[in-house]
Simulated scan of single mutants.
Amino acid sequence: MPDRKLLDELYRMRDFAGDEDDLERFSDILNELGQNASAEVITDLCRMLEDDVIEPSAAGDLLETIFYIADRCGIQASMHYLALGVPGLFPRAEGWAVRLHRMLLNADRPGFPYIEAYSRALQTIPARAARRVVNILLDIKRTQPQLYMEKVDRFTEALTRGEETGENRTFASN
Rank of each mutant, 00 (worst) to 15 (best):
G60E: 14
R25I: 00
A59T: 03
E20N: 08
D61F: 00
L33Q: 10
G60W: 06
R47L: 13
A58F: 00
D28A: 14
G60P: 02
G34A: 05
V53S: 11
A17P: 01
D51G: 06
E55H: 11
D61W: 00
S27T: 08
N31E: 14
I29C: 05
N31H: 13
S38Q: 11
A39R: 06
G60Y: 02
A39F: 11
N36H: 12
V53L: 14
I42V: 13
D21A: 15
N31R: 14
E20Q: 15
P56F: 09
V41Q: 00
L45M: 13
Q35F: 10
L63G: 01
G60C: 03
A39T: 08
C46M: 14
N31A: 09
D28V: 06
D51K: 08
R47I: 00
M48T: 04
E55K: 09
D21Y: 11
E55T: 01
D44L: 02
G34M: 07
E32F: 11
D51V: 06
E55R: 10
D19I: 12
E55I: 02
L45K: 07
D28Y: 09
A17H: 14
L49T: 00
I42K: 03
F26M: 04
R25F: 01
L49Q: 05
E40H: 12
G18M: 08
T43K: 15
D52M: 04
G34P: 10
E50V: 00
N36L: 10
V41W: 04
E55W: 03
T43G: 02
L45Q: 07
L63M: 15
R47A: 15
E32I: 09
N36F: 10
D22Y: 01
L49E: 00
L23E: 12
N31L: 11
C46I: 07
V41T: 06
L62D: 04
R25T: 04
L23R: 15
F26A: 00
G60D: 15
A58N: 01
G60A: 04
L49M: 05
I29P: 07
T43P: 02
I29H: 06
E50H: 07
D19K: 15
V53Q: 10
L63V: 11
L63P: 04
P56C: 05
I54A: 03
A59E: 05
R47E: 13
R47P: 00
F26Q: 00
L23H: 14
E50R: 07
R47W: 10
A39W: 08
D19G: 03
V53E: 11
E50F: 00
D61P: 01
C46L: 08
I54R: 07
A17D: 13
D44N: 14
R25M: 01
Q35V: 10
E40V: 12
D28K: 12
D52R: 09
Q35A: 13
P56D: 13
D19T: 12
L45Y: 10
E50M: 04
L30W: 06
G60R: 12
S27W: 02
S38L: 08
G60Q: 13
E20R: 15
S57W: 08
